[in-house]
């Protein structure tokens, strides 16, 4: 942690970066919250631990940072995937971001939990980027991750085995709790549209009411707009007050992208985006 503070301080003092986006301790020590350090004093407050769940890449697309100059960001491997994807989509200029990469030993799934094999976030279970793919400075050391069963994957297999009708019933049940707060969208680093399709009123494509129609169209379109883009940080699911298993939808799309196009989002600056490109030999056996 001292390394991190010293590095942030150094970057802020010598003018390499204008701000450092990082984490500070929140109400209780087992919670952290995002923090924007602007001075060397601010940098003294920064922390990094197993409770740093937030994906800070979310803040990179904010208007106020677009013209700030170089922005420093404390990032775990999964956050870096989001940054890579943002660079690929031309939302962030590669030269305008200074990544303080953190070797990550897993994070909790929800704020306010103790870190254990029970509470380690699902995304950490099969993580392949514990050391970030892209960084300017790398801090921290790797330790062994606690292991547990991937319940999410089990549920996914259960769903895949169901008939379409049963799956609809499952989702209708889950979506029924949706209150249309759009926290899933706001918490997503890749939902950066100035004006979301859900907010467009002329015509209103996605009904804002939280009934079967509105819930399905919103959740389907949200998942689709993230198809081949979602980097699997699961912030949507964590932000959801109704605890809808949104990551299942994203994960499914990720699996389809992998199966059909051998594509994984955010894994490198040399692979073009999935839906921004095409291949002449894409599968078309379903087209008459």
């Amino acid at each position: 942690m001292n390394e991190l503070r010293a590095k942030a301080k150094e970057l802020l003092t010598n003018g390499t970066v204008k701000v450092v986006i990082g984490y500070i301790e929140s109400t209780t020590p087992d919670r952290t919250k995002p923090f924007i350090a602007r001075t060397a004093e601010d940098a003294e407050k920064l922390v990094f631990n197993k409770y740093c769940v937030n994906n800070l890449a979310l803040y990179l697309t904010r208007k106020e940072f677009r013209r700030t100059g170089v922005v420093g960001i404390v990032a775990k491997g999964c956050d870096v995937k989001a940054i890579v994807q943002l660079i690929q989509e031309n939302q962030v200029n590669k030269d305008d971001v200074y990544i303080i990469g953190m070797n990550c030993n897993g994070v909790v799934s929800e704020l306010g939990q103790d870190f254990s094999a029970e509470t380690i976030a699902t995304k950490c279970l099969n993580c392949s980027v514990r050391t970030p793919l892209l960084y300017h400075t790398l801090l921290g050391t790797l330790e062994d991750l606690p292991k547990r069963e991937d319940k999410n994957f089990v549920l996914m297999q259960k769903l895949d085995a169901m008939s379409a009708g049963e799956r609809w019933d499952f989702w209708e049940d889950e979506f029924e709790r949706c209150v249309k707060c759009y926290a899933c969208r706001q918490a997503c680093p890749l939902c950066y549209c100035e004006r979301c399709i859900a907010d467009k009123t002329v015509p209103r494509w996605i009904e804002s009411s939280a009934h079967t129609r509105g819930n399905f169209s919103w959740n389907i379109i949200r998942a689709f707009h993230l198809a081949g883009r979602c980097i699997g940080c699961n912030e949507c699911e964590r932000a959801c007050p109704a605890e809808i298993p949104l990551s299942l939808l994203n994960r499914k799309m990720g699996m389809v992208a992998k199966k059909e196009f051998d594509f994984v989002a955010g894994m490198g600056l040399d692979t073009p985006t999935l839906v921004g490109t095409y291949n002449l030999n894409d599968n078309e056996d379903f087209i008459k």
């Binding site: 389809v256 087209i287 008459k288």
Partner: peptide, 28 residues
Amino acid sequence: FHARRRWILFRQLLDFVGIDSSRVHFSW
């Protein structure tokens, strides 16, 4: 070409949320 790529993804999403994708037909 772009559309085709989207359909490949979208068909499977429809299936996953329980709208039978065999109700959606594509042709050239």
